[in-house]
């Protein structure tokens, strides 16, 4: 049984098609990365799943049951960490977490324990009596997360939770999400930071224009796009024939020389670097620094969604 099962979801804003027969299946315990350019439909999809928005067509099932705005039993199992910090400026850190946790857990003793756990989980023990105004950006983000997960949800939605936070806070947040996953929480994670998604997500979906473009593990996506490694070789002089020979290799997609550096983009292949070096040797070209980098998720993302600027 999938925790999230979205089938053929269609959502229109007037004449704009925000979700075009969108499908999504998430298994229990997964950390599912949802990627897409601005306006691709990520937030709309999440809002539809959370029943904050109505939709025109399709079905949404959570925990194997049909989701609706009044399925409070299902909502009880969900945690939401929105993109914007959604807390009360008028309440202290503890009061904020207690309020949002209290919407899920009515028993005072149980709630107190959950609130304490959440405070410890995000490392806000020293700030429980502070008001949000006195917290830094990173601490605010952590408070935002604590408010969303204090009730220990089985399914948690994180919508760009690391926007505008310092590397230390980001590392702490990602560590926390991983810990949640290890405890059995299913996580849906959206972000524009590809390295984060690569680091924590077990499966990734790339969507655009309301449709799923690709889905799979990090490695599967890289294979899917056919992007291999990127090789850079420092050479003082390179005969054009040598460059053409490199370009002619089966695994090479492009080879450019700008006077000092030979930049090669490879497809999937087993011996890309040795093949390139073998050709250089035949032309008596002595390489300086050689640098090979495997493809990143960012390369995959740009390959799939294109390099045109978005709104």
């Amino acid at each position: 049984m999938n925790i999230v099962d979205v089938k053929n979801l269609v959502k229109r804003y007037g004449t704009t098609l925000a979700l075009d027969h969108f499908n999504m299946e998430i298994a229990p315990g997964e950390v599912f990365g949802l990627l897409g350019p601005n306006g691709s439909g990520k937030t709309t999809a999440i809002n539809c799943i959370l029943q904050l928005l109505t939709y025109d067509k399709g079905s949404i099932e959570l925990f194997g049951e049909k989701m609706s705005p009044t399925r409070y039993d299902l909502k009880r199992c969900i945690g939401v960490v929105p993109q914007n910090v959604a807390v009360f400026e008028e309440l202290t850190v503890r009061e904020n977490i207690d309020y949002f946790c209290g919407l899920y857990i009515s028993d005072a003793a149980e709630r107190r324990a959950c609130v304490n756990d959440a405070i410890e989980f995000v490392g806000l023990q020293d700030y429980v009596k502070h008001r949000p105004k006195k917290l830094s950006g990173g601490l605010l983000r952590r408070l935002n997360i604590a408010c969303g997960i204090a009730h220990k949800p089985e399914l948690a939605f994180f919508d760009e939770p690391t926007v505008a936070v310092d590397p230390q806070s980001r590392a702490s947040i990602l560590q926390g999400i991983t810990a949640m996953s290890e405890r059995g929480t299913t996580v849906v994670y959206t972000s524009h930071y590809m390295e984060e998604v690569e680091e924590i997500c077990s499966r990734i979906m790339i969507m655009d224009k309301g449709r799923t473009l690709a889905i799979g593990t990090n490695a599967q996506l890289k294979i899917m796009t056919g992007i291999g490694e990127r090789i850079e070789v420092d050479v003082l002089e390179l005969p054009e024939a040598a460059r053409a020979k490199v370009q002619g290799l089966d695994c090479v997609q492009s080879a450019d020389y700008d006077g000092h550096v030979l930049r090669i983009t490879c497809g999937n292949g087993q011996h890309n670097v040795s093949d390139v070096l073998g050709i250089l040797r035949t032309f008596d070209v002595t390489p300086g620094r050689i640098w090979a980098e495997p493809p990143t998720l960012n390369d995959v993302f740009l390959e799939i969604t294109g390099r045109d600027l978005r709104d």
Partner: peptide, 19 residues
């Protein structure tokens, strides 16, 4: 206005608290 701030209201609406 404070209680109805879009972000916090949305958070409340995703909770199991009936409207």
């Amino acid at each position: 206005a404070t209680m109805g701030r879009t972000d916090v209201r949305r958070r409340s609406l995703t909770s199991p608290l009936p409207f």
